[in-house]
Design a protein around this nucleic acid. Structure first.
Lengths: 210, 210
DNA sequence: CCTACCGATCGGTAGG
DNA sequence: CCTACCGATCGGTAGG
């Protein structure tokens, strides 16, 4: 959402060397923030992983805070963009519960496609400086509102039981999906399989009939 | 589970001054680790909050690692003990799905009763030194096995649909429950209400009949 | 449980 | 993008 270019940028070509370097820095930063946490990841670690010296990072980012905010906001933005695209691709009049099922699949696919960014966001959010956290809170809130809207639509269509509390359902879905970043190893189960399982559990229920 | 006394302990009375001081240190450490993360919490922060000087912490703990491990392992132990007690209190022959419902209630109550310990465990686990993480992994695995057993029993009793993958259900339940630490503010919704909602969603499903 | 201190490492900057 | 450096802070220890 907020892919602001560094002020020092001389070129704005998407594939410029500077922008590719910037992306490389972000990739390594995301991985390190995920693995080590915000404070334990030094700019020297990130610089070394990227193949440059510590001070050189300041040619691309004004501060550690700015770098972290960029990584973490992209962790949400990448997921949100994919979920919105998946929804937009559905024909009008699609069953709102079916919309949620597709949103779950898109969320899980995006989450694990750029897992370092999403995981850095989740793991470091609470531990980042207050001003960064304030801005990230708004990014999170916007994304949560998207889910609130999907659930409200399904409820309005009479597709969700009245006893189910919409916020509880929203947090249950987000919680079970985001927790996969804490236990999934490698490439299995696939994001599609996870989405199918979680959709079946949360909407049809785990209970056997009879 | 692993309430090892400090080697320097002269007394082993549960209410000794030394043990009460130790508990005070752990309480403040848990809160600070939760709020700031592992690396951002200095021993000076913990000492100041407790009302002592930095070096004095070493009278109670051998290192920052040991202090963090104690906080984080108790974050699991407190929850596990309560869940096991809740299960043990049920009459023999209780419907295994009913056992899970009670386990969910106990988990959520314990989680938010000693939220700083549980949250410190969840938030700092990935960022703690490797040897600490290795030991905490085993503590986590033991607790997850408890849930795996509850789900296996319900499945064996024919109470869970065959299409539902047991690990997916286990991680879905743990994920939605643990995620409450990231969004719940103050005292509402209550742990009981959350448990009732999550049980209904995961087992009966959110979908309206018909 | 405190004072005083150590070596190491950190984020950030000046000047090139 | 690098070298060389700064002040601040860290975990930990000696000696009391």
């Amino acid at each position: 959402m907020d892919m602001k270019n560094n002020e020092k940028s001389k070129s704005s070509g998407k594939g410029s060397i500077q922008e590719r370097t910037r992306r490389t820095i972000l990739d390594h930063a995301a991985r390190l923030f995920r693995e080590r946490g915000y404070a334990s990841t030094s700019l020297r670690d990130i610089a070394t992983a990227t193949g440059m010296k510590a001070g050189s990072l300041y040619y691309h980012f004004a501060s550690k805070e700015e770098l972290a905010e960029e990584v973490m906001s992209q962790g949400i933005a990448l997921v949100e963009d994919r979920v919105r695209a998946a929804i937009a691709a559905l024909p009008e009049g699609t069953d709102p519960v079916e919309v949620i099922r597709h949103a779950m699949t898109a969320h899980l696919k995006a989450l694990h496609d750029r897992g370092d960014y999403a995981s850095a966001n989740i793991r470091c959010y609470a531990h980042v400086p207050p001003d960064v956290k304030d801005r990230l809170r708004k990014v999170r809130a916007t994304y949560e509102d998207l889910w609130a809207g999907l659930i409200a639509a399904a409820r309005a269509a009479g597709r969700i039981r009245a006893e189910v509390d919409p916020p509880a359902l929203r947090y249950a879905l987000i919680g079970m999906m985001n927790w996969t970043l804490e236990w999934r190893r490698g490439a299995s189960p696939s994001a599609e399989d996870l989405a199918a399982q979680f959709y079946a559990i949360a909407f049809a229920g785990a209970l056997a009939d009879g």
